[in-house]
Write a protein that binds this DNA or RNA. Structure first.
Length: 248
DNA sequence: TAGGCCATCTGGTCCT
DNA sequence: AGGACCAGATGGCCTA
């Protein structure tokens, strides 16, 4: 079963079941043990003989000891893979694709590809924003005087929030917009297209080409909510990254 | 039914 | 020596 999706998948091979000693009905292990008993010892190299390949000093282990050893190794490997799947889930949680019980989980390969392209896209956005900020303030500009003295927004976001309209005139393709977009999704996690600030492309497209949607902008209406990435509060992780990048 | 995806087992290799 | 990591093999589940 998917350790990382036990709620949606009902595979028969849960870790607990496999760890159980009943596991030794396993055909592979039985075949291995039979093989081991029939195979002449002289034919085995030190590396390839026995369970796990490390046999030196284990040749005299009893069958039970070998089974225990094999169990331990299997258990460790299982745990390792579960940890890997947990990490993969953590990655899925921050990926910009629809999530929910009715939505099929991203495959591992898709998750990795999407993550890579998502990072590329965000990096590109960041670079573009930095360029625009530089343009707006000018080389010798005094940004501090322009910024509002107090705001409920985190300090790292102030420049972007105040610059949103200006940036829109530079970034936003005025041709591509629609009516006032719907409110961005909940800020807890950023998986939504709303967070990305553009209409969500089809997942396969985003996996293949993350940058082609950057040009699609929103027109900024004063006083109206805007879902674009420039006007959205950044999630904590992104905000910290942003502050680091902008701080130089 | 074929193909995709996955969990698990297994043996080899590398690292501490 | 023991553990981590890796890749191949295998079999199960699910979907088109």
């Amino acid at each position: 079963m998917d350790s990382d999706a036990s709620s949606t998948c009902s595979r028969s091979s849960s870790p607990e079941l496999a760890v159980d000693s009943r596991f030794f009905s396993n055909k592979m292990f039985q075949a291995y043990c039979a093989d081991r008993e029939t195979e002449p010892r002289s034919d085995r190299s030190p590396q390839s003989a026995g369970c796990g390949g490390k046999v030196r000093g284990r040749a005299d282990l009893s069958k039970d000891d070998l089974q225990d050893l094999r169990l331990k190794v299997n258990s460790r490997e299982r745990k390792r893979m579960h940890d890997l799947n947990q990490a993969m889930d953590g990655l899925r949680e921050v990926m910009p694709y629809a999530q929910g019980p009715s939505v099929r989980k991203l495959s591992k390969i898709s998750t990795l590809l999407l993550a890579r392209n998502y990072i590329l896209m965000l990096s590109s956005s960041l670079e573009e924003m930095k360029k625009l900020v530089g343009d707006v303030y000018g080389a010798g500009g005094s940004a501090r005087r322009v910024l509002p003295p107090a705001s409920s927004a985190p300090a790292s976001q102030l420049p972007l929030l105040s610059l949103g309209p200006a940036l829109h005139s530079l970034v936003g393709g005025a041709s591509q917009h629609a009516s006032v977009p719907t409110v961005a999704q909940a800020p807890r996690s950023p998986p939504a297209s709303g967070y990305l600030g553009f209409h969500a492309p089809a997942l396969p497209t985003l996996i293949k080409d993350p940058l082609q949607h950057l040009s699609g902008g929103y027109r900024h209406f004063p006083g109206m909510p805007c879902p674009c990435s420039l006007c959205q509060p950044l999630p904590a992780s992104t905000a910290s990254l942003h502050s680091l990048s902008m701080g130089k």
